[in-house]
Amino acid sequence: MNADDILAVANAQQQATPAPQTGDDSTDADLWPEIRRIIETRMSSQPRDLQREIGPSELGTSCVHCLAAKLAGWPERRRPAWLPFIGTCVHARFEQWFQESEETVFTGPAPEDERRRFVPEMRVTVGHLQGLHAGYDVKGSIDLYDRKTGSTIDWKIVGNTTLTKVKAHGPSQQYRVQASLYGIGLENRGEAVRYSRIYFLPKTKTSLADALPWQTRFDPKPGRWALARAQLLVNLMDCIEQAEGIDVRDSWIHSLPAAGPDGCFQCRSAVWPDQGMPEGFDDKEWTPIPDKWARLASVIEPEYQENQPKQ
C-alpha cells in the first residue's frame, strides 16, 4: 500500500464531514454520518486490525522503534483506513476464487486438502518468541500457496508510488522478510517451498497489464535474521525491565530511532503512545536511561545485510 496515500486519508478523516449535496432540507436527509460510522466500525473489526501479537508482515520493518513498541505490547491507535480496506476486500475475493479451484497436484491416499494445488490463506507458524512474562508462536496466513511450483504468493494492492519504487529497487525489506518467513512456515508444516513471489497489483490502473510480478528463489536467511533480531530485542527489553523497571524500558523504546529515508510512516502517523496517543503517555516524563542500556540500542540492526552469518 502507498504510505503517503494512507497518511492523506488519515488526515482527511480528522476533518469534519462535508454536508451532503441534496435538495432535501429535512433533518433525515443527512444519513452519511450514520452510514460512515457503521462502515468504519466494521473496518476496525477486521482480524488484521485486532491483531495484538507481532506477525510475519511486521518482523521485517527497518524501524527499530516500531518493532520494539509492538513487541513490548504498547497500545496502538489505528484509525479506520479506506485504502487498506480495499486491499482486504481484494484478498477476500481472491481467497474465494482460489478456494473454488479443483486443480490437484497428485492423486493418492493423501487427504483432499493435501492434494489441492492452490491453497489460499494457509496458516503457518514461522517461529517462536519467548519473553520474561510469556512466549508465543509467530503465526501468519500466506495469501496463496501453489503446491505445483512450491511458491508462496503475496498480493500487494499498491499505488503508483510503490510501483515505481519496486520497479527501481525491488520490494522493500519488510516485504522480502515476510516472504522468507512464509517459506519457513511452509517448511515447518512439511510443505515443499522453492519460490517466493510477490504480485504488486495496481490500485489506480484500469488493467492488470500494469501489475508488477516479482519472484526469487526461497531464501530462509532473511526470515531467520528477523526472528533472531526480534528475540534479541525482547531479551534486551526484559533485561532492562528486570534491572531498572518498566519506566526505563519504555524510555529506552522511546529513544530508538524511526527508520527509513522519510522516517517511519507509523511513527509519523502517531500510532504509538509516545507519538501523541492519549493513553497515559501524553504527559509522560521520560525516565533517564543509564548509559549502559542506552549503548545497547546500537546492537539492534535496522537493515538486513545479504552476507549475514548463518543463524
Rank of each mutant, 00 (worst) to 15 (best):
L129R: 13
L208W: 08
A228W: 06
Y304N: 10
V166E: 00
L236H: 12
V248H: 14
R78E: 03
G280F: 14
T125E: 13
E303F: 11
S255M: 13
L233P: 05
P80R: 12
V105S: 08
E301V: 00
G185S: 10
S269Q: 15
D219K: 06
G263H: 09
D250A: 15
N188T: 01
E306G: 04
Y195G: 00
D113R: 01
V271M: 06
A29K: 04
Y175T: 06
I54Q: 05
D282L: 15
E285A: 15
T161K: 14
Y195R: 07
G60W: 06
D262W: 12
D154S: 07
A226R: 07
P56W: 13
Q266N: 12
W286E: 12
L232V: 00
G223P: 03
F94Y: 08
L163E: 03
D154I: 00
S196F: 01
E34S: 12
D143V: 00
L59F: 06
D291N: 05
P18K: 13
I184E: 08
F98K: 02
N2C: 05
V177G: 05
D49G: 07
Q46N: 07
L7R: 14
D283L: 15
I38D: 02
L296E: 05
L236T: 12
Q173K: 11
H254R: 15
V271Q: 06
P47E: 10
G108D: 09
K139W: 01
G170H: 04
N188K: 08
T162I: 14
F200S: 07
V271F: 06
F265Y: 15
V138Y: 09
R78G: 02
Q215H: 07
Q242F: 02
I54L: 04
E301T: 12
A192I: 09
N11Q: 15
D283G: 09
L7T: 11
K70V: 04
Y136K: 10
E114M: 07
I198H: 03
D274T: 08
A69Q: 02
L132I: 02
Q99E: 12
F118E: 01
M43K: 05
R147S: 03
L83E: 02
T206R: 15
I300V: 15
E102N: 11
Y145W: 01
R123K: 13
A110I: 01
E306V: 07
Q173N: 11
I157L: 09
Q15D: 01
R93Q: 03
E306K: 04
F118M: 02
D146H: 05
P75V: 02
T162Q: 13
E95K: 06
S172T: 09
Y136V: 04
E303G: 03
T164W: 08
L181W: 12
L227A: 11
A68Y: 09
Q99N: 14
A259I: 00
A92I: 04
A209K: 08
G245R: 11
V119N: 05
L67E: 00
G190E: 04
V9T: 08
D49N: 14
Q242E: 14
